[in-house]
Amino acid sequence: MTSPASRILIIIPAFNEQASIHNTLKEIWALTSVKPDVIVIDDGSTDATAQEARSSGAHVISLPFNLGIGGAVQTGFQFACQRGYDIAVQVDGDGQHDVSYLKAIIAPVLNEDADMSIGSRFMPQQVKGYRSSFTRRLGIGFFVHLIGLLTGCHIYDPTSGFRAYNKKMIKLFAKNYPHDFPEPEAIVLARKFGATIKELPVVMRRRQGGASSIRYFKSMYYMMKVTLAILLDMLKTRRLAVDYGD
């Protein structure tokens, strides 16, 4: 089991989230069960996201320009890797993720039951919160089957960004992390390296401000792009294996 004094880092990627970042951080500070460090990755925001986060007491890494969600999260992994954190948790800055589930999300990773755990909206017999639009759910359903087919692992919510990772995953993702719409791809990547993934039921909320980075979800574009990216990722094994072994 990972030591009870494990160092936990919450990575919050944020792009123009000035309206919601303060509340997200306030909820994290209010937690009593876990006391993690928090790093906000300001992904080239044009509003006051970084200032809001700093004034709320968080550490902030400001990227010089917008890299997209994958680039921002990977910056967090690189930071966690450099600082030797044991566990990294990804939490969205838009207030969708209820951090009261943080302890539950971390538990499988902390107990070494899994390398990566995912907070899921769609597990059977769970309390229903915000579950995204119908078209998005259709897309999610498609990825559930695609990922299941390719990895043999049934993930109910492959697009959820509420995730915890152990040191092995931090090291892997610090070097290789998909960029554009990374969550489904990251699962495939993790499985290719033999990672064990656990899903836990969580209730999510509507975003409290800002705009979603997945604006193209309504069209088939997102699905086609991610599907192609996942299939191409399946061919990358050798290069990634070399990188991981470094």
Binding site: V60, I61, L63, P64, G71, T75, Q82, H179
Partner: peptide, 17 residues
């Protein structure tokens, strides 16, 4: 560019600290 942007972001943070 992406790699540099990440490095700059982290270095800037460390400098501030």
């Amino acid at each position: 560019n992406d790699r540099m942007a990440k490095k700059i972001g982290i270095l800037e943070f460390e400098l501030r600290e």
